[in-house]
Design a protein around this nucleic acid. Sequence first.
DNA 1: TTGTACGCGTTATCAC
DNA 2: GTGATAACGCGTACAA
Lengths: 333, 333
Amino acid sequence: MKHIAKELDVSISTVSKALKNSEEISRDTKEKVQAFAKLYNYKPNNIAVSLKNKRTKNIGVIIPDIVHHFFTTVIRGIEKFANTKGYNVIVCLSDESFDKEVINMEMLANGSIDGFIMSLSSDTQLKNDYNHLKEVTEQGIPLVLFDRITNEVQCDKIIIDDQLGAYVATKKLLDEGRKKIALITTRDYLSVSKARTEGFLKAISDNGNSGVEKLILKMPSMGMDESLFVAFLDEHDIDAVLCVNEIFAISAMRYLKLKGKKIPEDVSCIGFTDGLLSKYANPSLTAIAQHGDEMGKMAAKMLIEKIESENEEETYITKILEPTLIERDSTVK
Amino acid sequence: MKHIAKELDVSISTVSKALKNSEEISRDTKEKVQAFAKLYNYKPNNIAVSLKNKRTKNIGVIIPDIVHHFFTTVIRGIEKFANTKGYNVIVCLSDESFDKEVINMEMLANGSIDGFIMSLSSDTQLKNDYNHLKEVTEQGIPLVLFDRITNEVQCDKIIIDDQLGAYVATKKLLDEGRKKIALITTRDYLSVSKARTEGFLKAISDNGNSGVEKLILKMPSMGMDESLFVAFLDEHDIDAVLCVNEIFAISAMRYLKLKGKKIPEDVSCIGFTDGLLSKYANPSLTAIAQHGDEMGKMAAKMLIEKIESENEEETYITKILEPTLIERDSTVK
DNA sequence: TTGTACGCGTTATCAC
DNA sequence: GTGATAACGCGTACAA
């Protein structure tokens, strides 16, 4: 701008106004300025604009892990919606670590972004320490939590109804007449695992006293521990299994097949997170879809509305999306 | 800073210096200022600092698709390395579209980032139009291209040796004594598909005139077109197949099994991109690992070195990583 | 040892 | 219709 002002022998502010098509500038000057701007391929400096308006048009997204189909679809949803509103997405990974989550938040909170969308790391949920989130909200930075959330922090939230998802899946297994149903989950500190376990238990108890046996295996983490798995499946002669993620489900199916079980004839399988693995498994896996795209889009929508709303009303909502059962070949039609 | 200067009745610059532990400030003042800074939880505003230093400490990453294991591992590699150097990662998705790629680049090029890491969209490679990249490099913004690259632009690049990968995989199939080997790929406008096809052909021709039949199916896109697939596999009675991605490989295995073929006894299968699908497929898929993590890390390293190097030497390098054949159960040991 | 003044690139306000 | 000035938050050369 400085350059083109000198070139045309006008003031910088005239240039600024001309570029914004201000009414107060003569058509003649405007045309000249705009021509030069095109010539020099002028683009306003985002940083300077941000400093002025105190708006960065950036959204900070912090997730535990990006090599994970669900989070990936959420990011895509966020990105898609944010872009239509002129926002960029800054992605940081906590890598399931509390410390990294804190560092990343502080890094971004110092003016780099207008708001946060995040899903808690397992480490954070285990520690149960949310001071970094509270600080951010107290600074007035809008925050939307998705999927792995906490009640300790006052902010907008969006989840799928994990309990309902597990309920629907378990009900499907019960309706098939299954009698020895296993749930393979993680320890309860993960909010989603807890809700899914509740849904599982509720479905069975709602089913009345029909002699259904319920077996629960709680894995220490989202990763696979083959030996625990094998021991559990060897000990119990199940006829159905619900897993809280795809990897567990695929692994269970593989080991069951190895033991000579037929799927879905002998054992019926359902997994959470309807990702690529479910679709391309053999047999393809009946799954609870978590609608990551939709969740990301909604989260971005909620956040941007908060960012752009003038009033400081402190009303927070928690949006609950309905999961969907996608029936494939690992259950009986 | 303004606030705490007023509070302590000193000037803003005194505060600034005290916070940076400048020698010229008395210990007394420094302690007072630093105490207040901690109290108010002061953090310098990134935007203002960026404007001053002309350094944002942000890296812009533009990829065609985030719901894709390979890109996801690359991002993880970039993020990991960038964070250790104090950089944030801004992720934008081109969604395989030329227009989105251009829009995103322009958006970020106006001061939001210090450099780009990107992989070309298929649309861009098809159009063969790289003016947006050239403009950016001419502006002096460092650029690192990975995986899907072009020779039209002068910049640092990093790829795996796709030709070698295909060569090694094909050789493995030849060593098993396979005689009717198929390659399932996409059309040649994707730089990687082209290189892989070359490697495939080279391996077979290097093998001498041993009566090996080579069949090539070129799919119109990365997505699945079931009918083309089925027609091809019905027409040719192959005994080995190399696919340029996991989805093709999994789908091929599924259909071959449906036709009563045994894998790997009757047909041997290898796929590119060693992702989750390969690991958890049934049988597990022998794959060419592309080392996305390593590629991301190297790309970030190259970019940050360019960003932080004072001299404007115009030397660009192309780094070529070696792919690795991961043997699993879809080939004969 | 501390404070003043200026600049980073932009825009809004107000004076001319 | 145009231009000067201040301000966003920070760093720093220079003056006091």
